[in-house]
Computed example of a mutant assay.
Amino acid sequence: MKIAFSPCPNDTFVFHAWVHGLIPGAPELDVLYADIDVTNHLAAAPGGPDVLKISYAALPWVLDEYRLIPCGGALGRGNGPLVLTAGERTGISGPAALSGKRVAVPSERSTACLLFRLWAAQQVPGGLAEVIVMPFHEIMPAVRDGKIDAGLVIHEARFTYPNYGLSLLADMGSWWEADTGLPIPLGAIIARRNLDAERIASWTRQSVEYAWAHPEASKDYVLQHAQEMDPSVAQSHIDLYVNQFTADLGEEGYAAIDALLGRAAREGLVPPIERSRLR
């Protein structure tokens, strides 16, 4: 079975057991490790992998071919994307100062970008000059070096941005949670509609449960793919992004997905979808 997910610690932690043949009855996986922008496009292209991790923001474009798997993804509180600047030298002291500025985002169809556009519609009068897509690991150096005015960052950048001399302008997660009272839907696991979704969900959930029961087992695998990340940062990343919603979305998880995609559809940012297609 072909699967694509990012090399980030939460994904490698979640899928370690399945990738290494530790889930009884689960098929062998042929893994493609790819940035979220790559997996978002793979899901929308003909002949994509059987199972993928994509942004929830990309879900409305792929539901004809794929269905949402209710576990294995990233959804939670206190883990939203951050808008960063290079501090006082930029002259950007608040959200309104982003008007007419150039901002980098990690995939046009990422949940991070979707949240940012919803936030900017409220907070940035006059709008942005340009939104530029960059691989997420290139964004902080670009902000630091003055190549762009601000950057929207995800993943371990929450913990490492001070190392680049950057300043936090806004936390998309804090804004979303204050505005809706709901957790943030970040990354979804999807599977082709011609596959047995219940079995895929079962294997994925077993892999999550194995990871929690044997946290030491995946450490070498996680760090191998974590782009020279400090082990403590990798663990903080896992602790933040692997939570109760990773084991099962539950009613609150589905409500958060519906709220995000419903609001985005009303703003014309994503195609509208039937709620029933999420289950």
Rank of each mutant, 00 (worst) to 15 (best):
51 V>C: 11
110 S>L: 08
122 Q>A: 14
50 D>R: 06
31 V>C: 07
231 P>D: 03
40 N>L: 03
13 F>K: 01
190 I>N: 03
94 G>D: 13
246 T>A: 08
84 L>G: 05
66 Y>D: 02
76 G>N: 10
4 A>S: 14
267 E>M: 06
134 M>E: 13
259 A>R: 13
32 L>Y: 02
21 G>T: 10
6 S>E: 12
181 G>N: 10
221 Y>R: 09
15 F>L: 04
154 I>K: 02
227 Q>C: 13
201 A>F: 01
95 P>C: 09
14 V>K: 02
164 Y>K: 06
109 R>D: 13
165 G>A: 07
117 R>S: 07
141 P>D: 09
150 A>T: 10
255 A>T: 10
192 R>S: 05
111 T>M: 08
162 P>Q: 08
68 L>K: 00
215 P>G: 11
133 V>L: 12
205 R>V: 00
59 L>G: 04
264 A>R: 00
31 V>S: 06
83 V>R: 10
183 P>D: 03
85 T>R: 06
158 R>E: 06
193 R>G: 09
46 P>F: 09
215 P>K: 10
140 M>S: 12
65 E>S: 12
175 W>G: 01
108 E>Y: 13
143 V>M: 07
108 E>P: 11
251 E>D: 15
32 L>V: 11
31 V>G: 06
137 H>F: 13
178 A>F: 05
44 A>V: 10
277 R>N: 14
157 A>Q: 04
272 P>I: 02
202 S>T: 13
274 E>I: 06
209 E>H: 12
121 A>Q: 13
88 E>F: 11
82 L>Q: 11
43 A>S: 12
9 P>F: 03
139 I>M: 08
159 F>A: 03
158 R>T: 03
199 R>Q: 15
21 G>V: 08
154 I>M: 10
163 N>V: 11
48 G>I: 03
124 V>W: 02
19 V>W: 02
262 G>H: 00
85 T>I: 05
227 Q>M: 14
195 L>D: 06
14 V>Y: 01
251 E>R: 15
255 A>I: 02
142 A>K: 09
173 G>D: 01
247 A>C: 14
234 A>L: 05
219 K>Q: 15
269 L>R: 01
143 V>K: 04
